[in-house]
């Protein structure tokens, strides 16, 4: 019963829209919301990558458009931005040496994308560029803008391909599925080497190839348990950590001698 009603309203409103476009469209604009079941994910010792499910909903979807499958959603899980150096090896006297390098500011450590359809089917390359959406459209800011554009382009491409090769930049086509007219589920991949820190989940809504709205949520990824404690101590109390490492080694050496002595 609800669907035809909604359809009717939509038709009425679209008629209104035709007569008074500016005013009538405002209350009906589609929106998008995403929700995370948790705001933090803990990585334990055995972590070997995982799928993270993000649920979301469309607000005020146009049932006609929805039925025709002309709504597209792209969900991105973006890791914390960090400066990165890309180095290229070249042959010097037969030996491979890191020669040229390019530093980029604020490169997301990880970038997982889930989409309803292949990216090229959703919208124009230009609008991806404007939105800086998708691993291949992410704008990487070089620290030294004085370098030649060709060099910057070469190192940007290398940066993307290295990130993709380590699984940190991934794309899951079909990873977003509509469960009903306005409910969707997105599955983004967390690589085994996913960085800790504050990640940002962003959802982009497209209608017939036109960008409508964006929504975002934050997710904290951290290490848990024993490993986390070691990592924290090693960074916050590095001197004591060093003393501990030395004592452990001396104790192990002594115990090894006592237990396994053969002379």
């Amino acid at each position: 019963m609800r669907a035809p009603n909604a359809f009717a309203t939509a038709v009425v409103l679209s008629l209104l829209a035709a007569t008074a476009p500016a005013k009538a469209q405002v209350p009906l604009t589609e929106g998008i919301q995403i929700g995370l079941s948790t705001d933090n994910v803990s990585i334990t010792a055995g972590f070997s990558g995982a799928d993270l499910t993000i649920f979301g909903s469309l607000e005020n979807p146009d049932p006609l458009v929805a039925r025709q499958g002309r709504y597209d959603v792209i969900v991105v899980l973006e890791g914390p931005p960090k400066p990165v150096v890309v180095r290229r090896k070249d042959r010097v006297l037969g030996v491979w040496v890191n020669l040229d390098s390019e530093t980029f500011e604020n490169v997301p450590v990880s970038y997982s994308v889930a989409t309803t359809r292949p990216l090229q089917d959703i919208t124009e390359p230009n609008s991806y560029k404007q939105l800086s959406l998708g691993a291949s459209n992410l704008y990487m800011q070089p620290a030294d803008a004085g370098d030649s554009p060709a060099t910057i382009e070469e190192f940007t491409a290398a940066l993307r391909s290295r990130k993709a090769a380590t699984g940190l930049y991934s794309e899951n086509v079909g990873g977003v599925q509509f469960l009903s007219q306005n409910l969707f589920r997105a599955t983004v991949r967390l690589a085994p080497n996913v960085p800790v820190g504050t990640h940002k989940a962003r959802a982009f809504l497209f209608k017939s190839g036109v960008f409508i709205k964006e929504s975002s949520a934050q997710l904290e990824i951290r290490k848990s348990g024993f490993e986390q404690s070691i990592f924290r101590v090693a960074h916050n109390y590095s001197f004591l950590y060093g003393i501990f490492a030395i004592s452990l080694a001396m104790l192990t050496g002594w115990l090894g001698r006592v237990i396994f002595r053969k002379d």
Partner: peptide, 17 residues
């Protein structure tokens, strides 16, 4: 390893700005 062409000529590392 020094002389053989590496599978990846490019490498990434954290930068210190």
């Amino acid at each position: 390893d020094l002389f053989v062409t590496p599978p990846n000529l490019y490498s990434l590392s954290a930068a210190d700005l």
